[in-house]
Write a protein that binds this DNA or RNA. Structure first.
Length: 259
DNA sequence: ATGTCGACGAATCGTCGA
């Protein structure tokens, strides 16, 4: 089975690309981030016609996440129960797979703007709350996936300019320590379980020909629990959608689990 | 620093967030 994550930067604008991508890449589950629409505007009919059930946690203008799945969805939790938040950033659900229940946490991590700002402080508080949520979920669901737009480049391989961008947002020691704390819960960065091309990125700035120059970051991740690790057979970044005429600034990451 | 997007409210652009 295949599971993917994609920050689509407005589902209103990108729905045709999502449908096109799913047709070419019929994954079992897709986590979306930055819907930028409310739940009443979520395009259930169009995705159902493509064979997918969806659960969403949206809001107007900003943020918003959804799980799009061919597998039955249950036990949906919106946002972090331990962290009251007006921003819609997390949706957690159970997928009924042939191997049993799989707990899927799909998140749009806080951007954080810059170290020293209020937004950065919010990012660190949010990260701490997320870690506790993942810890508690792992205790109940050994088969667990945490994926989404992490807004963290875990190490120097994950940025086009490790020296020039050292200490800036996505690259700070605090953010990277939080990423390591997530791994310490018993999770694995599935992308790094396999040999990958150098300079593999999942996001490129719209400005200054970022994609054309491959000035990007790897900030979209799929973390899998110890129990799922033996099943993982591949993980790759699909750069193709970034070449579309009106692309998202992010591109999908796809995990393959052997049955 | 920002050369790009997208949403929004109020206009036919300015502001915010990323």
């Amino acid at each position: 089975m295949k599971i993917a994550t994609w920050n689509i930067n407005s589902l209103t604008v990108r729905l045709p690309q999502v449908l096109e991508w799913l047709e070419a890449n019929p994954v079992d589950a897709l986590g979306l981030q930055e819907l930028k629409l409310t739940d009443d505007k979520f395009p259930h009919l169009e995705l159902e016609a493509a064979g997918y059930q969806c659960v969403s946690h949206g809001q107007k203008t900003y943020n918003g996440v959804a799980i799009v799945s061919r597998l039955p969805i249950s036990e949906v939790v919106r946002n972090l129960p331990n962290f009251p938040d007006e921003q819609a950033r997390v949706i957690t659900a159970t997928l009924a797979t042939a191997q049993g229940p799989l707990r899927l946490i799909n998140a749009y991590f806080v951007n954080g703007q810059a170290p020293g700002t209020d937004k950065f402080a919010y990012k660190l508080r949010w990260l701490a709350a997320l870690t506790e949520w993942v810890r508690s979920q792992l205790a109940h669901y050994p088969r667990l996936v945490l994926m989404g737009d992490f807004n963290v480049a875990p190490d120097d391989r994950d940025t086009f300019d490790p020296i020039g961008l050292a200490g800036t947002i996505h690259h700070t020691p605090e953010e990277r320590a939080h990423f390591q704390q997530l791994l310490a819960l018993g999770l694995h960065d599935s992308f790094r379980l396999f040999e990958q091309p150098e300079k593999s990125f999942s996001w490129w700035d719209y400005r200054m020909l970022g994609f054309q120059k491959n000035r990007g970051l790897r900030i979209d991740h799929i973390l899998i629990s110890d129990a799922l690790k033996p099943q993982a057979s591949a993980c790759h970044i699909d750069r193709a959608p970034r070449k579309n005429k009106q692309p998202s600034d992010h591109t999908p990451v796809v995990l393959t689990l052997a049955s």
